[in-house]
């Protein structure tokens, strides 16, 4: 039956779009973990802050200019917040991973509460820029244009991150830090500046993802946990700290969340964590995880 084929095509396409959105919101988490060894559990709350920035700045029927302005504000706020967070985590550098993760969990609780005080507990929905509003016909059904745009955004982001990490001096420094932190500081690079910069970039990626994601997921209390869990699943499936892993993990989870749910509706609530458990059983460190483990 052609309509079944068409709806499967829609599911595949939608999985791709959700996958790239997941990549944008997970890449900052994996970057900070790979570079700093900090599992930032405030990532979801920071994403939500970005989503609220998007809602606040964009208003109804936003233009391109307003959309870009929202992205800019989110990026600046993210850089500053990331720098601050890196200073907060700094004193705990010698402590176990668990302590740092718990500190960020505490920060997440506080930030979520502050957001609820500032923006209220109502559900906020955000319109995409008017040029991207509406739907087009794809495979016999309508499909929202903004979601097609997200595929482009995710692809572009993946390329940019790849180029920065693989082709620039900053990237070389990042790779060197991942490989051997002590050596990098021994040759005279100021580790603290690198820390603050990377933390800032990672957190800014979360706030920017919040603006990109807002027209799809909106902004509301509780979204922070939903996003945190999704991002954690993505980066763990891909292998913590691996950018390539985050991309593959995001695309995989995107398909699981749409195609998996439409194929097995009665097991819909189990597919996400089922997939995570399966991957970890087969590859205990994720698809692209480093062979040597880090100790908590």
């Amino acid at each position: 039956m052609p309509s079944i084929l068409a709806s499967n095509l829609t599911s595949l396409l939608n999985g791709l779009s959700i996958g790239f959105l997941l990549f944008t919101l997970a890449v900052g988490l994996t970057l900070v973990f790979g570079m700093m060894d900090v599992l930032n559990l405030a990532h979801g709350a920071i994403y939500l802050a970005g989503a609220y920035i998007g809602w606040y700045v964009m208003g109804a029927d936003p233009t391109w200019t307003v959309f870009l302005a929202a992205l800019g504000v989110a990026a600046v706020v993210g850089l500053l917040a990331g720098g601050a967070l890196s200073l907060l985590v700094q004193p705990l550098a010698s402590r176990p991973h668990l302590d740092q993760a718990l500190l960020t969990l505490g920060v997440a609780l506080i930030l979520a509460e502050l957001l609820s005080m500032a923006f209220g507990d109502d559900v906020r929905s955000v319109s995409p820029p008017s040029a991207l509003a509406g739907s087009v016909d794809v495979a016999g059904g309508s499909y929202p244009i903004y979601r097609l745009f997200l595929i482009g955004v995710g692809l572009a982001l993946a390329v940019v991150v790849y180029l920065v990490v693989e082709r620039t001096t900053v990237g070389a420094l990042i790779r060197a830090t991942v490989a051997d932190r002590d050596m990098v500081s021994a040759v005279g690079v100021d580790n603290r500046k690198v820390r603050i910069a990377v933390f800032g970039a990672g957190v800014a990626l979360a706030t920017v993802a919040g603006v990109f994601g807002a027209p799809v997921y909106g902004a509301r209390p509780g979204l922070d946990w939903t996003i945190l869990i999704l991002a954690l699943v993505v980066v763990v499936v891909g292998g913590l700290g691996s950018i390539k892993g985050a991309l593959v993990g995001a695309l995989l989870i995107g398909q699981v969340e749409t195609f998996g749910r439409s194929l097995f509706p009665e097991f819909a609530s189990f597919v996400l964590f089922g997939a995570l458990a399966l991957v970890l059983i087969a590859r205990p460190r994720g698809l692209f995880g480093a062979p040597t483990g880090v100790k908590v």
Partner: peptide, 21 residues
């Protein structure tokens, strides 16, 4: 009839496709 998971569903596209079909 569809009963998507409560509280964890962000995307209803699979359900919407089934309604259409």
């Amino acid at each position: 009839q569809s009963m998507p998971p409560f509280g964890t569903t962000q995307d209803y596209q699979p359900v919407l496709s089934r309604i259409r079909n």
